[in-house]
């Protein structure tokens, strides 16, 4: 009973590829945690930067493919972005205080 899709959505193959990519990124970020990048690259923000960069990549895959932002209406996409944009505003304004004291 493989009827046609009622709405545009990622194919089963795409979902599996995304799952594999997410698991690989999980392995990568866990492995990276055992290397002291701050000491290796003489900086203070490398470890946090690498961990959060991989987290953002994973989150983007989930939002775009699992949560259908790529396939839904543009309004839904804008609404989805709104939360993250407000979070960025909060982080930016907080940083102006704490980073430059």
């Amino acid at each position: 009973m493989h009827a046609k899709e009622a709405h545009p959505s990622p194919s089963p193959m795409t979902l599996i590829v995304i799952l594999v990519a997410l698991m690989l990124l999980l392995g990568l970020t866990t492995g990276a945690a055992f290397i002291d990048f701050d000491k290796l690259l003489h900086g203070r923000w490398w470890s946090i930067g690498i961990a959060l960069f991989i987290a953002v990549l994973k989150a983007a895959l989930v939002v775009v493919f699992f949560m259908h932002v790529k396939f839904g209406s543009r309004t839904a996409g804008i609404f989805a972005m709104a939360g993250f944009v407000w979070l960025m505003i909060m982080i930016a304004l907080m940083s102006t205080d704490y980073l430059f004291r």
Partner: peptide, 9 residues
């Protein structure tokens, strides 16, 4: 996960 567990250095 990375925030709590992985910032070990």
């Amino acid at each position: 996960f990375p925030t709590l567990y992985l910032l070990r250095h």
